[in-house]
């Protein structure tokens, strides 16, 4: 049986007086905040923060390279968490033995996983590209197969595979469970990427930010705060896009259901005509 559409999107759209199904008051506020934050970030990162003693201006690439991978990490952790929820809510005995996911929460978590993974892939790609540019001017090379760079590429390729798996045609429950399992396997690489610079000898420098309280700061004043601020900005931007993406996934499901209903209606008409 087809579930009636969840009213949340529509209500949100109504409250916002919005035409786009993916907009709401909250996302509009978030969008304005994001744009303002990006403006301030551009000022801080490109103008106010100083050049580095050794690297000169190229250090400014840090303010997009490092926040990109942090946001990607966040996305992949969220994907893993949501996937665990999907598996839990669709296990047999949880009313999940049918082809279609009956559980509303499981569907929501599945969408969260999909939206977060897509953002993770986008920001991992940006990390690789900006890192490569940064590497060219500081290391003198676009690429080296050291442990950090290799595991990061692997992370990117794995989650591309995850997104491909999500697109494989299958019944929704099977698809959701299958991709959830893959997400939980893929996330194992995350700590490997992060600690590769400590575990192995790499060309890549060690972690940029020491977040331990009282720990030594290896980044001085304005650079430190600019990096933290850029991270916050990237998070807000990612959140904003992520919420829209989540809602688009919901609409895609609705469209799928609608086309199914259409087919059923056609069958009914055919039958009525045949009688």
């Amino acid at each position: 049986m087809i579930e009636t559409p969840e009213p949340d999107l529509r209500q949100q759209a109504q409250r916002a007086g919005s035409l786009t199904m993916t907009g709401s008051v909250a996302t509009r506020v978030l969008g304005v905040v994001a744009i303002a934050a990006v403006g301030v970030m551009a000022l801080l990162a490109l103008w106010i923060s100083p050049a580095d003693a050794v690297q000169g201006d190229s250090v400014r690439l840090m303010y997009i390279h490092v926040p990109s991978i942090w946001v990607a990490y966040g996305g992949f952790v969220l994907t893993a968490f949501a996937s665990a929820r999907v598996l839990w809510r669709t296990r047999s005995g949880a009313g999940g033995t049918y082809g279609v996911i009956a559980d509303r929460h499981a569907r929501r978590w599945d969408r969260v996983a999909g939206a977060a993974a897509e953002l993770g892939v986008l920001f991992t790609a940006l990390t690789l590209v900006t890192g490569s540019l940064w590497g060219r001017v500081t290391w003198g090379t676009y690429w080296q197969w050291d442990a950090r760079l290799t595991t990061t590429v692997l992370l990117f390729v794995t989650y591309l595979g995850y997104l491909a798996l999500r697109r494989l045609p299958a019944e929704s429950r099977a698809r959701a469970r299958r991709s959830a399992v893959m997400a939980l396997i893929a996330v194992v690489n995350l700590p490997i990427v992060h600690y590769s610079v400590d575990w192995w000898r790499t060309l890549h420098q060690e972690a940029s930010l020491n977040l331990e309280p009282g720990g030594d700061r290896n980044i001085t004043g304005e650079m430190y705060w600019t990096l933290l601020y850029s991270w916050a900005t990237f998070t807000v931007v990612a959140l904003w896009i992520g919420i829209h993406r989540y809602r688009v996934l919901r609409l895609e499901e609705l469209a799928e259901e609608a086309s199914l209903e259409e087919l059923l209606a056609q069958r009914r008409d055919e039958q009525a005509a045949g009688r």
Binding site: A51, D52, V54, V59, M62, W139, G140, I219, T220
Partner: peptide, 20 residues
Amino acid sequence: MVVKHTNEYAAANEDRLPAP
């Protein structure tokens, strides 16, 4: 040759840097 820069960052004109 590749340069292996460290994760130390400091403003180009700060006094507390060791002499270059």
